[in-house]
Amino acid sequence: MDLGLDYTGKRVLVVGGAQAARRVLARYLASGAHVYHLTGPGPVLVGRPVSGVSTPAFPRSTGAWNALIAAVDLVAVVQASPDIDAHIVAACARHRTWLTREAAASTAPVGSVTLVGGGPGLESLLTVGAMTALHTADVVFYDRLGPTDRLARWAPGAELVDVGKAPGHHAIPQRDAERMMVSAALAGRTVVRLKGGDPFVFGRGGEEVLACRAAGVPVSVISGVTSAIAVPGAAGIPVTHREVSRSFTVISGHAPITDTELTHLIGLDGTIVVLMGIGTLLQMIAGLNRLGMRADMPVAIVERGFAHDQRSTFGRLDTITALATGAGVRSPAVVVIGEVVALAARGDADASDLLYEASELAG
């Protein structure tokens, strides 16, 4: 089904068993089409009635096939025996009715779960694999940081369930979200768990994979663009740069970072990227100061990466806390500490020029 076409008011005949055709039926219904569902005799086309979908009588002759096909604008074949398929092809050719073939949804007793990395929130950063998974989903459990503006279009007809968490507020606890996913898959549904960034970068994707495996549910992972690299990049900050930084470390600031960890980070002499670090920013900066990081080390805080109101606050280790407080910095934000910050310290608009100048000097 090409979602770029307008199916509003079009008459669409879907051929195939109800379970196998459920995603196709849902997509055309969501598109505003008038949908007719054809099932018939024999094991290939047997299925139960579908709520909201008209079910015509099964054609018993060439004339009946011709009459049925002539009455619709599009035929979508999901399942058909060779004999039935031949009738459909001939009738579509005769009446110049559009014919498309759609993939069948899983009819296994147990469905599946796919963890999908949605990237840092920009639609164009969704991968082809992510879009394919969403397109075939029966239900999508999504987070607040993932791209959701057009979720109903990317997963047409799917049930959409918000299981997102905000700082200090978990409307649906993690274990409950895992149980919901597993339960849906055990009911035979195709489940997508859409997460911001990458599922395995502080996304608790590992826990969800283990929950699925423990329940005997097939599970797969589609990686996403992580905000640890993409959001600094959106502010013109490369996490590595020739002759400036040859390493970067990504660390969670969800809980206070220990002095031992901070000492190791200083010793690496590379770029430090902190996710979920606004709540512990003061403690982290004070610790780096106390443990010997130089006071003029460049620091940036990039809020709401890729959003229309993205904002960057630039400073140094000895000024960033005051600047952050004055600016009212809030989550979601990425903190970047290191020499690479200086490449974009004059602001996002000058970032590309600065990077070019730096490469010329290094070369």
Rank of each mutant, 00 (worst) to 15 (best):
A103G: 03
P59D: 12
G111R: 07
A358K: 10
P147C: 08
P59F: 08
L275E: 02
V24T: 15
H169S: 10
L262G: 00
E208T: 02
G233E: 14
V299S: 00
P82F: 10
R23L: 07
V217R: 04
A133V: 06
D259P: 06
H135I: 00
A322D: 15
A344N: 05
A177G: 11
A105L: 04
L3P: 04
G47K: 10
V340N: 02
V35L: 06
A108D: 12
A171R: 13
A187G: 08
G196E: 09
A171M: 05
I172C: 11
A185R: 08
G292L: 11
A177D: 02
K165S: 09
V75Y: 05
L186W: 07
V15W: 06
R60D: 06
G253T: 06
A295I: 05
M284H: 07
L5V: 12
L99P: 01
G292S: 10
R242Q: 08
H87C: 07
L145Q: 09
V225W: 06
A18N: 12
L38H: 07
A108K: 11
V341E: 00
N66I: 02
T190I: 06
L354A: 12
A327W: 11
V35W: 06
L262I: 15
E102W: 05
G119Q: 12
G168I: 10
G17D: 09
I278E: 01
L288D: 00
D149K: 13
A158V: 09
L115D: 02
G267T: 11
